[in-house]
Amino acid sequence: MLEQVAIQLLNGLVNGMILALVASGLTLIFGIMDVVNFAHGDLYMLGAYVGTTALAVTGSFWLALLAASVAIFWLGVAIQLVALRPLLGRDPLTTILATFGVSLVLQNYALWQYGPAGRRITEPVAGHFRLFYLDYPWYRVIVAVLAAAILAALWLFLKHATWGIWIRAVTQDRVMAAAMGIPVPLVHTAVFGLGAAMAGASGCLSGPLVGVDQTLGLGIILKAFIVVVVGGMGNLVGSVLAAIFISLLEALASLWVSPAQAVIVSFVLLIVTLLGRPTGLFVPTPK
């Protein structure tokens, strides 16, 4: 039993780090421009697909990961410029509809381009290590470490880089930021691209763990939204903690119930959060 718990904790941590990567992009975008990006899961899905293509061309998973991040960054930039920039300052409902539309376009593009059959990305690291009675794949551990490294890099970037300070300033007060000479429209576009790139990278990273098909985004986007709400809308650290917390809860719950039923735990947590602490579990209540 104790062994099962340990294994599930590790599983939960790995899933949590991937989810954290997706959710922090989502919360970054929401925090800075009040856009709820319904296409975020599809950027994750397309990241995985770009990964399969780049892997077939280059033969290197790590190059494929880079290609997926870069390609989805520019896709995000294009989406922001075409679908969101003209809507800035309008009713939030308009941007929800716009990103929902983009989501449908991306899913159907993937279906048209790659066909309905699922694809797989082979693990770049094939080794296993002995974990009690299991052969646990090293790749899963590497995914968690890599995701953590990307999040740490993001944190350092936001903390110290000029662009990081610009992003935080625009998130807090876009009018004052503009008056200080910060190019606010450019920062908005760049943040959307950055969030998209993080989703694309997560998609490619989790490609070897799950099959790749055009509905890949649907499962993760739902969880990412729960994470963003539980972590506090727009709160980056809160999102990372919430992603890990929720994934651990689900992993432990699946010791007793089926994984499909374990998802219920997340929804219960979401409802409890919305009822009790709508500003998020991991932040002091704002005054």
């Binding site: 807090q172 007060d173 429209p185």
Partner: peptide, 27 residues
């Protein structure tokens, strides 16, 4: 746009100050 004016030598100190609250003084 305001950000272009700021680069041309126009600065604004608003009445409610609008400090970036979670940024440090240096930031």
């Amino acid at each position: 746009a305001a950000h272009r004016l700021a680069r041309r030598g126009l600065a604004w100190v608003p009445e409610d100050r609008r400090i970036f609250r979670s940024l440090t003084v240096l930031e």
